[in-house]
Design a binder for these strands. Sequence first.
RNA 1: GGCGCGUUCGUCUAGUGGCCUAGGACGCCGCCCUUUCAAGGCGGAGAUCAGGGGUUCGAAUCCCCUACGCGCUACCA
Length: 505
Amino acid sequence: MAENAHRPPIRSCFPPSPTGYLHVGGARSALFDWLAARSTGGQFILRIEDTDRARLQEATVEAIFDGLRWLGLQWDEGPEVGGPYGPYVQSERLPLYHEWARWLIDNGHAYEDFDPPPPPGKPQAHTSDETVGITNMVRAERSFRKYRDWTAEQREEARHTIAHAPAIRFKMPLDGETVARDVVRGDIRWKNTELPVDPVLLKGDGFPTYHLAEAVDDHFMKRNVVMRGLEWIPSMPLHALLFRAFGWEEPLFCHLPLVTGMDGKKLSKRHGDAGLHEYRAQGYLPEAIVNFCALLGWSFGDDIEIFSKEEAIERFRIEDIRPAPSAWDMDKLLWINSQWINHRLTLGDFVERALPFFDADGLDINGFDGEYIASAFALVKDRAKLLTEVPPLTHFFFQEPKADMDMVRLLTKQGSDQPTAILEATFDALSAAHWRTRDDLISAIDTVVTHFGVKRGIPFGLVRIATTGRTAAPDQADLMLVLGPERVIQRIRAAIDALKATGEG
RNA sequence: GGCGCGUUCGUCUAGUGGCCUAGGACGCCGCCCUUUCAAGGCGGAGAUCAGGGGUUCGAAUCCCCUACGCGCUACCA
């Protein structure tokens, strides 16, 4: 509500690494960042974190932009739109990182590591408990620790003897404890002796690690809320310490709960952690994805489940985010998608979005009148759960069903022992009807009901099969009104002929 | 192994000491509406609030312990 107007503006930042497509976990983070900024009148920043040159995939940058745009999460500052604190691509900010790494050395907070760089790639996993168990004893003996206290002369000399550029490491405090605050979890404390040993800030290749780049960029971009996945909690003390060493104001840290599969395990492709583009191709609406993602670790309140991101802006507050992980429930996503299609989308919007799915379906409906298409779509709008269902649901409006053996089988198994006679009577009744309102058609068919003394479902069902080729379709009167008398009469005729040709009924 | 985070119906959640014999939603089941299928309406099953100790007149809500789950433990992010 209006309370949000009084909150300090949040400058949030979604910082993807261009190492893959935008997945639902990333989409959820971006959404929360966007909501935090919009709900407080702040700005949503997009920053490309491409400091890991080995895993970089240039092409994925564009895919990430596409995903965000599809969701409607427009960024206020970042690539393509610019902004006062650019550039917004880390590889273009290298001099800044070097400058501040230097500053840390000069002010006694960092030092050069003259050891040769380790082999590239992920280091060997700790497999033996025994090995891992003694880590804390060994930590004080890490080889690079000796450089921490080297004199200026020693360092000068070393620079001439090594062939590689030294990495720069942060001087972690040797005792005491570090306390940092997480918005959703409160204060978290660590004994400094248990923190990682002097992490690298600037790598031998001249690129910063996430830690340095994050602190420098967040400061100069004036990001004041750091929202990110909970896997970053262990780095929070280091990041807080970095800000304190620089003498910069710390942003608010806000760690988002994990999104898991239904089994509680890490979300994987198997669980639906597909790229956003795959959900798009499956006929999901961006509004539904956003709506569903917002419900992962946050709730709208007042028992309201269906809402737009604009509506969420009114109520979103980062301190209402829950700390517990949540599962990606495809059933609920599908329900939300159907709610949006059935009740939230306007007909015009629905038509516009469903149309492209006909191309994928292989049915060309471009020759049909726009009004005809719209009135056909209107009849399935309240029963489609996915956009991909629209073509099969409306197929018969654009293509006459085949009056073949399959149809004959459906007609004869429909529940009447005289389908041909009933269809012929219906044919006559509909031929004589007015075709102005639903009631014209219903009363026409009701004459058949009376004459044969059958249930309404019999003639309605037979005509449904004759006109659509299916046993399940929209309301038969509505559907016939859209199809028009010519098509309906002609299709019933074809069905009768097919029945007679096979000697049925 | 160490450190950290987490734990309310199968799932998403409401709930911040009494309104809770725990509310809503998805899914499931049944009924109604009805020319089919949906949608919609109504109802049902489903959580001793992870377990155990405290604090309190009173705890899902505060504290401690345990269990389990997850994360981190790189010159990756």
